[in-house]
C-alpha cells in the first residue's frame, strides 16, 4: 500500500486542513500516536521506532523542553517524528482521533505541516521499497566472518552497527539499541551488505575479492528515483 493513499494519511490531511489540535491513536503491532497542534504534526511515536527521549539520551542532548530550541534537539525531534510516521503510515492500522488542549508533546511546539511530513514519508517509503529485495527493517543480518581482502572506510555509525552485529540482529533492533532512526539504520545496513561487511542471516558470505561480482545486478538505492512518484 502506498502510504500517501492510506486511510490514516487521508484522515491526517483532513485534520490538518481543519486545523485540529489533538492526538491520533493508531492501533496494531506497530501502533502509536501522532500529535497535532493547529493542524501541524508536533510529534509521533511508534512502538517500532526509538522515541525522542531515547534519541536525546544517546546523543547527549538535554531532554527538558527548556533546551528545545537547540538545532540538534530540533533535528532529533524531526527525525523521531518522521521515522515514527513512516512506520505508522506503512502499516495497516486503524486511527482514532481525540481532540485536546494544545499541550506540546515531547517534541515541543514546532510542528511539521502535514504536506511536508507526507512528502518526506513518501520519499522514504520509496527508498524502503528499493531496498526491500535485499534488506528490510526486520531482516536479520550478521557480520561476515573472516578478514576483508581490502581496506574499507566506515563511518562512526556504521562501526557502531558492525560491532553489534556479531550475531543475527535486525536494523530495527540495532536502531532501538543505538537510539537511531530505523530508516537510517536500514540504509546503513543496506550499504554495508553491498560492501560485503554484513550478510542477511542464512545467506552465504561472499568470498573475499568477489564483492564486485556479488553486487552485479543487485538492487541499489537511488534517492533521486525515490522522488519520481
Amino acid at each position: 500500500m502506498i502510504p500517501l493513499r492510506n486511510p490514516v494519511a487521508v484522515r491526517l490531511g483532513k485534520l490538518a486542513g481543519s486545523g485540529w489540535t489533538g492526538v491520533v491513536y493508531l492501533s496494531g503491532e506497530c501502533g502509536g500516536v501522532i500529535r497535532l497542534i493547529g493542524g501541524d504534526v508536533v510529534s509521533a511515536d511508534s512502538r517500532g521506532t526509538p522515541g525522542l527521549a531515547a534519541r536525546l539520551a544517546k546523543a547527549g542532548v538535554s531532554a527538558g523542553l527548556d533546551g528545545g530550541s537547540s538545532l540538534e534537539r530540533g533535528w532529533l525531534s524531526r527525525e523521531a517524528t518522521v521515522d515514527a510516521a513512516l512506520e505508522l503510515l506503512s502499516a495497516r492500522t486503524r486511527a482514532r482521533f481525540r481532540a485536546s488542549g494544545d499541550e506540546p508533546g515531547p517534541g515541543g511546539r514546532d510542528g511539521l505541516p502535514v504536506p511536508v511530513l507526507m512528502a518526506e514519508v513518501g520519499r522514504r517509503y520509496a527508498v524502503v521499497r528499493q531496498m526491500a529485495a535485499l534488506v528490510t527493517a526486520d531482516t536479520a543480518v550478521a557480520r561476515n566472518p573472516g578478514p576483508l581482502s581490502r581496506a574499507i572506510h566506515v563511518s562512526g555509525f556504521q562501526w557502531a552497527i558492525l560491532i553489534r552485529a556479531g550475531g543475527p540482529a535486525t536494523p530495527r533492533s540495532l536502531a532501538l539499541e543505538l537510539g537511531q532512526s530505523v530508516f537510517s539504520t536500514t540504509i546503513e545496513v543496506f550499504r554495508m551488505v553491498t560492501l560485503n561487511l554484513l550478510s542477511a542471516a542464512g545467506a552465504p558470505a561472499v568470498p573475499a575479492g568477489r564483492a564486485g561480482e556479488f553486487n552485479r545486478g543487485r538492487p541499489a538505492i537511488s534517492f533521486i528515483r525515490a522522488l519520481a512518484r
Partner: peptide, 29 residues
C-alpha cells in the same frame, strides 16, 4: 542534508530552477 536519511535540514536558494528535494537527493547519491 542528513547523509544517512537524505532528509533536507535546511536550504537557501536564489533561483527557482532547481527542485530542492532533487538537489538533496543528488547530494546523498
Amino acid at each position: 542534508a542528513d547523509a544517512s536519511s537524505g532528509m533536507i535540514l535546511g536550504s537557501l536558494q536564489d533561483e527557482t530552477g532547481t527542485r530542492l528535494p532533487v538537489a538533496a537527493a543528488g547530494v546523498v547519491s
